[in-house]
Structure formats: structure tokens, C-alpha cells
Design a protein around this nucleic acid. Structure first.
Lengths: 230, 230
DNA sequence: GATGATTTGTACGTATGTATA
DNA sequence: ATATACATACGTACAAATCAT
């Protein structure tokens, strides 16, 4: 968990901006003005430019030459598309995981699942958010395809701005754990089709709960704004 | 086909470098030196830096702070992983296409397929390369999921450095067309599973033919080096 | 392990293109 | 339609970090 000490300004700005976009603190359609951002971060425009360029390539910004970069506008249709792709990629990870998991990996998966269950029982949404992420990343790892893991994580991150509200209720937390359990069972039993199907189901539920959220997401969760502050 | 007139230096450099990497003209592990590239392109380091940063985000370069960017090293295992992901994504496109293709789209797909067949019969490898690309992109489009199309194309582009040698023989060209035909039939019949399976088969053949190529690919096809030259 | 050479990272100034009056 | 304002794109200079000796 220890982050490297010496970070370049560009890295810091990119991470901060990406986080802000992911969290929804920077709304869609907002133009990322180089000058004002440079002032905000107390650096020159150069690292800000580079950070924006990198965000662009990840899909967190859309840049038009000489006209600046804006946070992309996700239409409901686009969001549906992204969720579908994420679901299929996650399902593929689960499928491969069921085919290839070693005993050690199965144990690790079970542990990740137990951690989810624990935090869900506690009802701590923030902790669950993290353990849930860990669980999914455990599945990625067990897929034994690091490239697939990268692509899936990348897509997941691009969708994540619209996933924050999903764990609002204690009920949802427990249901999420139940859905995970089906995935885990299938992977432990070495049932690829079952694992993929269970994961697709899980992601569809996620999608439907998030679907209730307005597509034009406004900034929320300002309790976690300290990242962009400093 | 008409490219936009006013291109920024960054765009030009990024496109040229990406092309060079895709073509294998820039070998794996080579460090992308900012100064020499700037000289080569007759610009300052600034646009070169930005281009490299963008390449980095697409997976065409790996940058370490203060230590420069290198063209990533693809191990055979990594290559296998990338092919597997590409195959699954292409298969997913085909599946969706079979579910959702309109009559107009079916006609367009058939036309793209016919163009492939024609260029294959001509035995023109370069033309086939393009018509083949058009065919696959037609399938992406018919999937009715533009995000999936983007992700698939992105992965395809990242794998493409290792795909050049696949159409060496006339035989391979005709076989490729036959495989396409099975995909087309399934899509036209509205058979999602069949379309996905046919596409997976097709991609597996592609993978096996490319697998014969050395993993540490050296620059070839220098007859097309004019892009990076100027 | 310290020092110099080299390369990257950042600051800042200028030019160019886009948008608005 | 021309001109003006403004933001971005690029060039240049310097600072900082890495690598080689």
C-alpha cells in the first residue's frame, strides 16, 4: 500500500484529476482549463497539459485541438454499453478463473470473499467498497491472463464514476455478497460456464441498481474531497 | 479517407510513432529518446513528449519517471494473453451483431465480405489486409455497442504488430475468407452462439499462424517505411 | 560512494488557431 | 467579414533526477 515517495507533478495531477472525475467531483462536460488547473495545483501549465493528455487516452477527457479538453458526456445509452462490456469482461475473468485456479488461489479467493461478507455484515459501505474491489481484482488475478486483467480493470475504472451509489443500502450489500458467493462456488467447483453466468448476473444487478441514478451525475460524496484539495 | 488538413505536430508524431511500432519498425525494448525523436521530426521536445505520453496510455510505450519510455516487451505468454482477449472481444461483437443486425447492416456486412473475397482471389495481400480490417470493423459496428467497438479496436491495434505475417500465402487468404463466411452466415441467420463460435475459431487460426513468428519481432516490411521517414 | 554527463521534468514565453464581437 | 480576445500548441531555458565513470 506504500506509495512511492518521489512523484512527478504530472503523475500527481493526473491521479488527482482522474480521482476527481471518478468521484464525480468534476462534472461531465466541464472543460479542463489548463491555466486555472495550473493555478489550482500551483504548477506551470506543462504538467497539467501532460496530465490532461494522459486522461484523454484513458477516456477520462476528450480533447479537441486548440479548443481544450472536456470531461466526456456519458449518455444513458453509452453507460449501458459500457456496463455490458464490463460485465462480459468480468464474466470472462470468472470463466478463466474457474478453468485455471490453483488451490492457493482458491483459498485467496475465499478469503477475499470472506472479507466482503465481513464488511457487509458490519454495514460499512466504504470498507465494503474496497473489499468488493479486492474481490473482483482477485478474480482478475486468478484468470491467469494479466492482459485481460488490465483491460477489465481499465474498463471498470471508466465505468466507476457511475457506481458509487450502488451500495447505499445494507440490503444491497448483503445481496452483493450472495451474488459473489455464487461466483465463488462456481470457480471453486471448476465450473466456467457457471462462473461466467453468475458474474454476468451479478453485474446486471449492479447495472440495474446504478441505472436508477441520474445519467447526468452531479458531484457527490464531498466528504472525500481532501484528495483534490491539497 | 480524406485526412484533415491541419494536424498538430503532436498528433502527427503520435500517429507516426504508433504506426512505426505497429509495423515493427521500432523494435521492442527500444527507448524512445525525446531529443533524437525531436530532431528526427524537426520539432521541439514538447510535442514529442506529449506523443509519447499518449502512446504510453495506449500501451505502445512504457514510461518510467526520469528514465525515459521504452517500447514494451511482449513475451510469447503476453502475446497469447492478448490474442485470447482479442478473440473473445471479437466474438462478443459477432454475438451482438447476430442479435441486433438490421437488414441494411446485413447487406453492408455481405458487401464487406464480398470485398474480402474479391481481394483474396486477386491475391493482393495489401488490399486484403485493408478489406479484412473493414470486414472486422463492420462487425464491430453491427454490434450496436460503440464502446465495445472502441475497446475491441484498441485491443486489436495493440496486437496488430504481431499480425503482419499472417497473410503471407494465398492459401491463408482464401481460408480466412472461408472463416469469415461462417461468421457472416451466423450473423445473417441471427445465430449469436454460432457467430461467436465462428469468430473464436477464426481468431484462433489467426493466432496459430502468427504464433509461428518469432516473439521478438524484428523490423520487417521496410517497403512501407516512408511513413516514418519524412 | 562521489562527481560529471546525459536525459527527463518543469517553467515560461511566443506563435497559432479558434471563437466572439 | 474583419478584427479582437482568448486558449491552446509549440519552442526554449533551466532544474532535477538518473546513469556512467
Amino acid at each position: 500500500m506504500a506509495r512511492q515517495q518521489k512523484q512527478t507533478a504530472t503523475e500527481r495531477i493526473r491521479a488527482t484529476l482522474a480521482d476527481a472525475i471518478v468521484r464525480g467531483e468534476i462534472a461531465q462536460g466541464v472543460t479542463l482549463d489548463e491555466a486555472s488547473l495550473a493555478e489550482k495545483f500551483a504548477v506551470s501549465r506543462t504538467p497539467v497539459r501532460e496530465a490532461i493528455r494522459q486522461l484523454e487516452a484513458i477516456g477520462f477527457a476528450e480533447a479537441r485541438p486548440h479548443r481544450g479538453a472536456v470531461v466526456p458526456n456519458f449518455t444513458p445509452e453509452r453507460l449501458t454499453e459500457m456496463f455490458a462490456v464490463m460485465a462480459e469482461l468480468e464474466a470472462l475473468c470468472a470463466r478463466f478463473a474457474a478453468e485455471r485456479a490453483t488451490d492457493d488461489e482458491k483459498r485467496a479467493l475465499r478469503e477475499a470473499h470472506d472479507a466482503c461478507a465481513h464488511s457487509a455484515r458490519q454495514g460499512d459501505i466504504d470498507v465494503y467498497y474496497q473489499t468488493n474491489l479486492d474481490f473482483h481484482e482477485a478474480v482478475y488475478a486468478i484468470s491467469h491472463n494479466s492482459f485481460l486483467a488490465e483491460v477489465t480493470l481499465s474498463v471498470r475504472n471508466r465505468v466507476s464514476p457511475f457506481r458509487k451509489a450502488q451500495f447505499r443500502s445494507f440490503n444491497r450489500l448483503m445481496k452483493s455478497v450472495e451474488e459473489h458467493a455464487r461466483v465463488v462456488d462456481a470457480i471453486l467447483c471448476g465450473d466456467p460456464d457457471g462462473a461466467a453466468a453468475a458474474m454476468i448476473d451479478h453485474m446486471n444487478v449492479v447495472r440495474s441498481t446504478v441505472g436508477e441514478v441520474s445519467p447526468t451525475l452531479r458531484p457527490l460524496d464531498d466528504q472525500a474531497a481532501e484528495t483534490a484539495e491539497r
